[in-house]
Structures are given as C-alpha cells and as structure tokens.
Design a protein around this nucleic acid. Sequence first.
DNA 1: ATCGCTCACTTGACATCGTTATATCATATA
DNA 2: TATATGATATAACGATGTCAAGTGAGCGAT
Lengths: 214, 214
Amino acid sequence: MLPRSPSLVRRERQKAETRQSILDAARDLFVVDGIEATTMRAIASKIGYTATAIYHHFRDKDALIEELCVADFTSLGKAMYKIGHIVNPVDRLRALGTAYAEFALANPSQYRFMFMTPHRHGPVDDNGHPAHKPDEDAYQFVFQTVSEGIAGGHFREELMNPHELAQMMWAGVHGVVSLWLTHGDDPYIQWHPPIETIQTMVSVMIRGAARSSA
Amino acid sequence: MLPRSPSLVRRERQKAETRQSILDAARDLFVVDGIEATTMRAIASKIGYTATAIYHHFRDKDALIEELCVADFTSLGKAMYKIGHIVNPVDRLRALGTAYAEFALANPSQYRFMFMTPHRHGPVDDNGHPAHKPDEDAYQFVFQTVSEGIAGGHFREELMNPHELAQMMWAGVHGVVSLWLTHGDDPYIQWHPPIETIQTMVSVMIRGAARSSA
DNA sequence: ATCGCTCACTTGACATCGTTATATCATATA
DNA sequence: TATATGATATAACGATGTCAAGTGAGCGAT
C-alpha cells in the first residue's frame, strides 16, 4: 500500500529527514570521538531527540553504523569503478591501491569499523540468502585485476593463485593503513608518511611479483 | 622493608599465586571469548573470587590485559632474538616475518590488543619517563635488520630510508595477519591459508626491494 | 465536529559493565 | 589478649545499550 494523501507523503518525508539527521549526527560523533566512545544518547541529544527515538529508525547501534559504512563503501566502490578504464592490469592495480589508501585515510572511523572490526556476517538480506556485502566489491576489484594480470602473463609463474595474490595486495595496503590508524600517534616510532609508504609498498609488491625484472 | 618472618613470606607467596591465577583465568577467557566480551566478574568467578578482588592485584582491566601482553611479547622478543644469529640480513628478515606471523596466529587475542587496538601511550613507568614498550622491540628488530640490509647494499637505491622500508615490511606481515584475524571467518571471501600468503608476501617484498633481480 | 487510529517520540526502567567506598574477617605482631 | 594489617566481600554508583509502556499530535471516517 503506497502512500496516497499529501499528508502521508509529508509524514514519510519528515521521517526520512529525521533518519538522515540521525545518520549525520552519528557520523560527526564517530569521526570525532570514535565509534566505541559515541553513545546513543549523545547522538540523539545532538539533534534534540531521546536515545530510544533512534530505535524507531534503526534496529540497534550496529545497524546504524552499518548503514554509514555501506554509504562510505559505495563511494569507495565508485572511486574504484572510475579506475576500471585503465586497461593495463598492473597500472590499474597501482591506481586501485592509491584509491583504497586515500579512502581509508580520509574515513578512518568507517575504515576501522569495516576492515578492522570483526563482524557477525549476519542473518543477511530479507530474502534469506546473504545480502550483498559492499566490502566484497573492493576485494572483487582487486581480485579481477589480479586475475587479468595473471592471465596476461604479468606475474611470475609460481604466483598463479589469484586469491593469494589479491589477498597479498590487499593486505599490503591494509597493513600500512591499519598500522598507521592504530599506532600513528605513537611517538616512539618515527613514522614515515603513510601515503608514501603505501606507494612504496605497492611498487615493491608489483615489482616483486612481476615476471620480468622490468 | 623486606619481609622477615615465614608468615609474611607465605602470605606474599599466596598473594602472588592469587595474582597468577587471575592472569591465567583472564588469559583463558580472553582467548575463548575475546577481550572485550570478557568480564571482570567472569574472570573472578572462574577462580572463586569476586570481581573487586582483582583490583587489589591490578589497577584496572587494562593493566591486567597489559600484563598479559607484556608476557606474550617478551616471548615474541625471545623468538625474534633467536633469529639474530642469521648473519645475512635478508635471510634474517625472512625468518623474522615467519616468527612474527606464527606468534600472531598463535596468540590472536593478545595480538589484537597489542597491534590492532589504539593505546593511550600512558603515564608510563613509575619513574616518569616512558616505560619500555615491548612492541617497540619487535619493530626495532625489523628496523635494525633492514638498516643492515641497506648498508650492505641489498636494496635498491631509491629504498634508502630504513624507517620506510621497515614499516613496509612490518605492514606487509601485519596486513595479512590482521585481515585474517578480523575477516578470516568471512565465508564470502575464499581465503588462502594465511601462513602461505605471508610467506609469499615476504618473498615478494624482498624480491621487489632487492637491488638485483636475483 | 469528534471519535478512534496510527505512529513518531518520550518516560522510565532493566541488565550489565567497570569501578569505588566501605565493611568484614582472618592472620600476624605486640 | 589486644591491635593492626591486608586480603576479600558487600553494596553501590554512573554509564551504556536496549526494551516496554505510555503520550500525544495528526490523519481518516463517521
């Protein structure tokens, strides 16, 4: 039953606006204070509501976080999609690494939640079978690019497993990013700028995996 | 004033035993349930105490965790120390990566806390100046080995910054480990065995950073 | 015009968490 | 035996995520 009368439409629009304002407030607080330290009550009071009001728009705190992450990973997916036009899989891989790292460093809270926090791979979609997990898309981009690189003979013959290679590439960039995000403010380590380390990491991995020495 | 009488000695020994039993119980629960989900009350009741009794032996929950981690990283340090005899820095680097990964996969809870959780680099030692951070030691091993490798001309001339190179190596192994620890049970990704991926990662990084193509 | 319904939102509460202040009680010392 | 110490328990506090029950405004139908 779709809404008919203008009043119902307005009511529905207002609900959507409230929902969006919850998301906005939550994002602000997550970025500033971190997800763990952000309270339902704090999110609500920031927009003049009570904590329990949030539960009319989101199942629980995790669902709220999840929605923010899905939005961000959609934008990550778009950034990676733009790179699809690069035909040479090796060049594309390099660009993917850069885009991935830039996203992670620009959205540290969401990155922490999505890639540095264990998830219950939950009851999934309403249909029953696993909902489309957006973080898979990022992996799929890398996996497909690596597969093309293997097919094109760009990599050494002992590195023929596309999953292993893709996971290695992913882990390389993720390693630099996650170390930086957890220990970047540790003054006891003389940190090299993470963006540079990532560029070096990608170059070194590509060179080390390449078939010829070129 | 050192304890004199046998009674005091016994009392002190009993206190130490209680303290140790707290550590043991905590470690068990941390490994099974994870650190976050493990409750002070659960730790205490596992050994027949009340939660508040723990606070006579440890300042707070973090101090308890910290002590467990220090113990584990001492053993990590020992494992790495054993590798010091390998003279060739490149071979040593390879061995360090393996030892590090084996430790991480064998002590996932502690690894999560030490390397995947932000820390307040706290009020430190009782003396005032920063307490000796055991996780630095692991980094120092890598840093020194990489420095030797650079000095020995093993690496390409554009990779002359030992911090960048050490952080890259560290991040490579950490990336595989941490991805596995957070997403290893995700059925939507066809995971390659992490130990193999780590071996490949180290080999690829070393080859990609090496001066000659050998 | 008013009744009743829907539904966004509030109130008040609950269980649980880490933690603290205070009480208890056994033991060692005098 | 009296006193002091120190290990443990009891009770409670504030904060958190969450739920059950209430409130009240706005809508449609009579």
